Simulated scan of single mutants.
Amino acid sequence: MLGYVIGTMAISLGGLQVGAHLAVFSKGLLRKLPFCWTDALAVPVGLGMWIASVIMAVLIKKWRGDVLFACVLSPPGAIVRFWASRLGNPIFRVFPLGTFMVNILGTATLAGLLVGRYVHSGGNTCDVLKGLGDGFCGCLTTVSTFVVEVRSLRTGHDYIYAGASIVVGLCLTILILGSYTWVQGAGKLVC
């Protein structure tokens, strides 16, 4: 577990540094390119892709659980994360409360969905559970924003924020999955 946490943090912080260096390197190149028209197209194209995902989820049963439900449920997760961060982060300057809340909520939801995948017998329920986990929770939780915020906080505050996020998330996961395993036993994952 410790290796996974350290590895994830190291890779994420390394990716942040590489991205920062690439941004500085490409700054002169990107200024010459006109990107104004792409901003105007982003919302209608994104909405069109989401509508296409909904239509495909209704019509194409084969890809529902693997891809389509995740595509349909991703935008609500991203929207909840955006608004929670926007409204919650300014409350405490030394602790990004909005990001903390969505990461903890997403972690608890993922643990609950995993319990649901042990309980349900298959079919559309399994596809929805996978879509909620991969799509909604995948966009609700955010390692990238978490790492940027850890990096931007003063020393001391960054350790408190990162430590609280990791410890509370792990404790919730152990509580939810452990409670189920303790009562029901560790069975085979149904879906």
Rank of each mutant, 00 (worst) to 15 (best):
K61T: 14
K61W: 07
W63D: 15
G65T: 11
G65Y: 02
V67C: 08
V67I: 15
A70P: 05
V72G: 03
S74Y: 11
S74V: 08
P75V: 03
P76S: 13
P76K: 10
G77C: 07
A78Y: 07
A78E: 03
I79D: 01
I79F: 12
R81Y: 15
F82D: 03
R86V: 03
R86W: 15
R86C: 05
L87D: 00
G88D: 12
N89L: 00
I91M: 11
R93L: 00
R93Q: 02
V94Y: 11
V94G: 04
F95K: 04
P96T: 00
P96D: 00
T99P: 09
F100S: 00
F100H: 00
M101K: 07
V102E: 00
V102G: 01
N103F: 09
N103G: 08
I104M: 04
I104A: 01
G106K: 09
G106A: 09
A108V: 04
A108S: 05
L110S: 13
A111H: 10
A111L: 09
G112L: 08
L113F: 04
V115N: 01
V119G: 08
V119S: 06
V119R: 08
H120Y: 06
G122M: 05
G123K: 11
N124I: 13
T125E: 07
C126N: 06
C126M: 10
C126H: 10
V128A: 06
V128F: 08
L129M: 05
K130C: 10
L132S: 00
G133L: 10
D134F: 09
G135V: 04
G135T: 06
F136T: 04
F136I: 09
C137M: 14
G138N: 11
C139W: 07
T141M: 03
T142Y: 02
V143E: 06
S144N: 06
F146S: 05
V147W: 13
V147M: 12
V150A: 07
V150W: 04
R151V: 02
S152E: 11
S152L: 12
L153E: 00
T155L: 13
T155H: 14
G156L: 13
H157V: 10
H157T: 11
Y159V: 15
Y159S: 14
A164D: 01
A164K: 07
V167W: 06
V167E: 03
V168N: 00
G169V: 06
L170Q: 02
T173L: 04
G178E: 03
G178S: 03
Y180T: 02
T181V: 01
W182D: 03
W182V: 12
K188S: 11
